[in-house]
């Protein structure tokens, strides 16, 4: 990238900070400016409360996303592959899908228990409700993209495999699965983003993690911390999407335009 471009791009970020600074100085008393937020950030980086919140939120997203991928990918591939299997399963899922995961929150608080268990050195308590909400956020994008991925594969690839002597499961393994992977990958990127959206909402309402930290900063009146929370969530969301993208790209060396 040449210097002129760098300068323009830096101007863009500085402009954003400038607007924030001006609005913070002239606007409502309650809005902290960049300096106040930076100060709060410095204070929080040394605090275990901050790191505990980060660890808890990250583990929840990681766990929920993994479960969503482990269920969503095989289920989506099967639904896309077999018309009959799809007919028996998909309509039920389609009943549930339009309900935004966040609307499940009251239900999950009521119905899903907290799991407490210990592993010798440390004991854990898993709020299954929050994990479930986060799971739902990631699950449907992954599922839908897996289904779409299979359906986008031209039938002639399966025919070619059959004519070369592939059995049904071999066609699945060598044609359906690899052919759907690019779309599955897209679903995972989207799913990771929605996992964070729903996690934050669930944590604000039922407690723990960065979502709760941000919300209690509002209720407790320490307004700069709200922005510390937002920025931290933004960074973590960005990093996790980047990791998913990177892993995906490394699995798809055959895609046109890939560098591998």
């Amino acid at each position: 990238m040449d210097t002129a471009k760098w300068a323009k791009r830096s101007a863009s970020i500085l402009g954003l900070l400038g607007v924030w600074f001006v609005v913070g100085a002239l606007g409502p008393q309650t809005l902290p400016g960049p300096a106040a937020v930076a100060g709060a950030f410095v204070g929080y980086v040394g605090s275990p409360v901050y790191w505990n919140a980060i660890t808890l939120s990250t583990l929840r997203v990681l766990g929920a996303f993994t479960i969503a991928a482990l269920i969503g990918v095989p289920l989506g591939l099967l639904i896309g592959w077999s018309v009959v299997f799809g007919d028996f399963t998909y309509p039920a899922l389609e009943l549930v899908r339009p309900i935004p995961p966040i609307a499940w929150i009251p239900f999950t608080i009521l119905v899903l228990p907290s799991l407490a268990f210990s592993l010798g050195i440390a004991s854990f308590e898993i709020d299954t409700g929050i994990v479930f909400i986060t799971f739902l956020g990631a699950f449907f994008p992954i599922l839908l993209n897996a289904i779409a991925g299979v359906r986008s594969i031209d039938d002639e690839y399966s025919r070619a495999a059959q004519s070369l002597g592939a059995a049904d499961w071999q066609t699945f393994r060598h044609v359906i699965y690899p052919g759907a992977l690019p779309s599955v990958h897209t679903g995972m990127v989207v799913g990771m983003g929605l996992a964070w959206v729903n996690l934050v909402a669930a944590e604000m309402i039922s407690g723990g993690g960065l979502g709760f930290m941000t919300w209690s900063a509002y209720t407790g009146g320490s307004y700069p911390v709200i922005f510390v929370g937002m920025i931290t969530i933004g960074i973590l969301g960005y990093v996790s999407s980047t990791i998913v993208r990177y892993i995906g790209a490394s699995q798809l060396p055959w895609m046109e335009g890939s560098t591998a």
Binding site: L31, G193, V197, V200, M204, T214, Y218, Y223, G229
Partner: peptide
Amino acid sequence: LRPIPPVAWVPASILL
């Protein structure tokens, strides 16, 4: 600004 999930804006927007 894009990576910040919209829901994380809730406290800030109630404030503002």
